[in-house]
C-alpha cells in the first residue's frame, strides 16, 4: 500500500495524543501525587490537544475532495471511518471541560466525569482508527486482531513516554510510577510489534490462482493492459526491496523502543524529551512500514503470485 504521509502523521500524532490524555486522566483521578499539580496537567493536556487536533487536520490532507469531508459523520452504523470521525469530535467538549476545570482549579464530580469520558472517547477513537485497517479483508497484513492491539499498545506507549517527559520537565523530578509505566509499555509495544512481524511473515490467503479462477494450473501475467501506471499501480503496487524493509524494521525497533527504553532509565528531563522525540520518530517509521508491508489482493491481478 502506498504510505500517504498525512495518514502516517495523523495516526502517530493522534495516537500519542490519545494515549497521553488517557494515561494522564487515569493518573490524575487515581490520585497519583505527581499528577495533581495543575501546571503539569495543563501542559500534558494542551500537548495532547495539539497532537490530536494536528493529527486530525493532517488526516484531511489525504482527501482528494475535502469539501465533502463533513459528510463523513453520516454512516456511523456501518463505516469505521465514520465512527472514528464521530468519536473524535465527541471527545472535544469533554476534553475542553476537563482541562478548563483543571485550569480553574475545580475539583469534584465535573472533573471526574469529564475526565473519564475524555479517556473513554480517546481509546474508542483510537480503536476505530485501527478498525478502519483491521476490517479490510482485502489486505491480509491488516485484517487481524493484532492491528487494533498494536494501535492501542503503541498509542499508550508513546503517550506514556510523553507523559513522563512532560511531568519531569514541568514538575521537576520524574515520578517513579510514570517511569515504570513507560518502561513497561515500551516493552509491551515492542513485544506486540515483534509478534505482528512474525504473524505477517507466514504466507496465507488469496493467490493469483483464486484471483483468476484458474486453480489447477500455474498462472503468469503476460500484460497488465496499460503501458504507464494507473491509479491501481500507484495505490496498491507500492513495492519496497525486502532488504530495505528488514533494515527499516531494525532501525524502527531501535529508534521506537530500544533508545526510549535506555533513555527512560536515566530519568533526566533532557534525555526524556529526547526519548519522546525518538519514540515519535520511530513510530512514524513503524507506521510507514505498516503501509509499505501491506499487500492488497489487487496485486494478484497485476502478476504477484501471492500476497
Amino acid at each position: 500500500m502506498h504510505p500517504a504521509f498525512s495518514v502516517l502523521v495523523f495516526t502517530v500524532m493522534s495516537g500519542a495524543g490519545y494515549g497521553l490524555i488517557t494515561l494522564m486522566v487515569i493518573g490524575h483521578l487515581s490520585g497519583l501525587s505527581q499528577l495533581q499539580d495543575s501546571s503539569v496537567l495543563l501542559s500534558a493536556g494542551i500537548l495532547s490537544f495539539v497532537m490530536i487536533s494536528g493529527g486530525l487536520l493532517s488526516s484531511t490532507l489525504h482527501l482528494a475532495n475535502p469539501k465533502n469531508a463533513w459528510r463523513a459523520f453520516s454512516r456511523f452504523k456501518t463505516s469505521w471511518l465514520s465512527r472514528e470521525a464521530v468519536f473524535a469530535i465527541l471527545l472535544y467538549p469533554f476534553m475542553l471541560i476537563y482541562l478548563g476545570a483543571i485550569w480553574m482549579d475545580m475539583t469534584g464530580a465535573v472533573v471526574s466525569v469529564a475526565g473519564i469520558l475524555t479517556a473513554v472517547f480517546a481509546m474508542v477513537t483510537l480503536f476505530c482508527t485501527s478498525m478502519i485497517y483491521a476490517s479490510l479483508k482485502t489486505i491480509r497484513q491488516w485484517n487481524s486482531s493484532l492491528t487494533p492491539v498494536n494501535y492501542i499498545a503503541l498509542g499508550l506507549m508513546s503517550g506514556a513516554v510523553l507523559l513522563a517527559a512532560v511531568q519531569s520537565v514541568v514538575g521537576g523530578d520524574l515520578a517513579g510510577v510514570l517511569q515504570q509505566l513507560a518502561l513497561a509499555l515500551v516493552v509491551l509495544g515492542a513485544v506486540c510489534k515483534v509478534i505482528y512481524f512474525f504473524w505477517i511473515g507466514k504466507p496465507a490467503g488469496s493467490t493469483i490462482n483464486t484471483a483468476t479462477g484458474f486453480t489447477q494450473a500455474s498462472v503468469r501475467l503476460l500484460d497488465q493492459g496499460h503501458t504507464s501506471n494507473s491509479f491501481l499501480n500507484d495505490e496498491f503496487g507500492y513495492t519496497v526491496e525486502a532488504n530495505k524493509l528488514v533494515r527499516l524494521r531494525l532501525l524502527m525497533l531501535g529508534v521506537a523502543f530500544v533508545v526510549p527504553f535506555l533513555l527512560l532509565l536515566s530519568a533526566s528531563s533532557a534525555l526524556l524529551v529526547i526519548a519522546a522525540a525518538s519514540t515519535i520518530a520511530g513510530l512514524l517509521v513503524e507506521r510507514w512500514l505498516f503501509f509499505a508491508e501491506a499487500r492488497h489482493v489487487v496485486r494478484l491481478f497485476h502478476g504477484d503470485q501471492r500476497v
Binding site: T212, F214, A217, S218, R220, S230
Partner: peptide, 9 residues
C-alpha cells in the same frame, strides 16, 4: 481493465 495471463506451462 483488461489483463492477459498465461495459464499452465
Amino acid at each position: 481493465r483488461i489483463r492477459t495471463y498465461e495459464v499452465d506451462d
